[in-house]
Amino acid sequence: MKAFVTVNLKAGVLDPQGKAIGHALNNLGFDGVTNVRAGKVFELDLATSDAVLARTQAEEMARKLLANTVIESFKVEIAA
């Protein structure tokens, strides 16, 4: 199975990178962009075919390494 782990800075944590990207989008003429938050996506290939187990494993990986939960939140999506 595949697991997609999306990691983003928590609300309230300053994201200067997102801000800079937002300014660049505005400069390109995308005036409607009012805010950008930059994050990361990890695409994990997992040996298991059990979606519940895959989610549990991916969440543990996110907590232990992929995200720093002091500053980041994460979301796990499972795909066949």
Binding site: V13, L14, P16, Q17, A20, N68, V70, I71
Partner: peptide, 16 residues
């Protein structure tokens, strides 16, 4: 901080 031996985290410098 990443190892949890000190609290908090070091973010990208505010002006990048």
């Amino acid at each position: 901080t990443e190892a949890g031996l000190l609290p908090g985290a070091l973010l990208r410098n505010a002006d990048l």
